[in-house]
Measured scan of single mutants.
Amino acid sequence: DEEIEKWIETLLKRNISLRVNGKDLEIGSEEFKEWVEKFIKEV
């Protein structure tokens, strides 16, 4: 979905790490990609 890709790009540009389930996810890491894929499937 384009919306999500733009959102991810924005996050990448800002180099933010997300806190997911109490863990810091490094943007661009494998864990982050897995989380994004799960997130996309749920939406």
Rank of each mutant, 00 (worst) to 15 (best):
I40N: 01
E31V: 06
E3I: 11
E3K: 10
N21R: 08
K13C: 14
E42P: 04
V20Q: 04
E37Y: 15
K41H: 05
G28L: 07
I27T: 06
L12V: 08
E30D: 10
V20W: 07
K33E: 03
I8R: 03
E5V: 14
E5I: 14
W35I: 03
I27R: 03
V20K: 04
N21W: 06
V36Y: 07
L18K: 01
V20Y: 06
E31P: 03
G28C: 12
T10K: 09
E3P: 07
D1I: 14
G28M: 09
I16V: 09
S29I: 07
I27G: 02
K6T: 07
R19A: 05
L12H: 01
L18D: 00
K23Q: 07
E42Q: 11
F32E: 00
V36G: 00
S29F: 09
I40G: 01
T10I: 14
E31T: 04
T10N: 11
W35C: 08
V36I: 13
I16P: 04
I16D: 02
L18S: 01
F32W: 09
G28K: 03
E2C: 14
G28P: 06
E34M: 14
I8S: 01
E37I: 15
L12D: 00
I27S: 03
N15G: 15
E42D: 07
K38A: 09
E3W: 15
S29G: 05
G22V: 03
I27P: 11
K41V: 04
S17V: 12
W7H: 00
K23N: 06
G22T: 02
K13I: 10
K38E: 05
D24A: 09
K23D: 03
V36N: 00
K13Q: 08
I16N: 04
S29T: 08
I27Q: 03
D24V: 14
V36D: 00
K41T: 06
W35T: 01
T10M: 14
E5F: 14
I16M: 03
F32I: 03
I4V: 07
R19P: 01
I16L: 02
I40V: 07
I27K: 04
V43W: 15
E26G: 08
V36L: 14
T10F: 14
E5W: 15
K13Y: 06
V36C: 14
F39H: 04
W7T: 01
E2Q: 13
K6N: 07
W7D: 00
I27Y: 09
V20H: 04
V36P: 00
E5K: 14
V36K: 03
K41P: 00
E5Q: 14
E9H: 07
L25H: 04
K6E: 07
L18Q: 00
E31D: 06
K38Q: 10
G28S: 04
S17D: 02
E31A: 11
V20M: 07
K6A: 09
F32H: 01
S17F: 08
R19I: 07
N15E: 05
K33W: 15
S17Y: 04
E3F: 12
I4M: 07
